[in-house]
Amino acid sequence: MPDDLLRPTIGVGVDLSVRPCRLMSQTYVAFFGGVIAVTAVAFLNARRLGVEPVKRRLILLAGGIGLIAVIAVFVLFDGDQGITSGLRVSTRVLAVVCCLVQVRLQRPMDRAFQLRGTDYGSLWWPGIAAVIGGAVAEALILLLVAVAL
């Protein structure tokens, strides 16, 4: 009798030297760096966790939608008074919401990682780099949008 449960399903092993970062830490990158920064971090982390390619593309898609939403909010808020606190807060809220979606996509493999019992890597320096890079990229994009309008 063929037994489906006892058929091999595991294609690749895991490299124990690869250190993904904590999911919670990514929300801080979202808060300080914005949508682009957190998408970069989430995408790279998902690869480290071994998240399947379909879900990795969904992470990028969530980031893309988040960026479009940020541009839309920027266009809506873009009055004469320049960058308002309302704009600053709402882009952060959007980035954090986007991050929560991306974290959800990584969670199953993060739990598998935790069950393997190896240590997380630090997000300090990569996180700071992503925050600076992401914030600059986002500002440039919004500047281009402002010039185009």
Partner: peptide, 12 residues
């Protein structure tokens, strides 16, 4: 089952 968990195959 533990091997499947480590590979992220929680259902199996």
């Amino acid at each position: 089952a533990h091997v499947c968990l480590a590979a992220g195959q929680a259902q199996k």
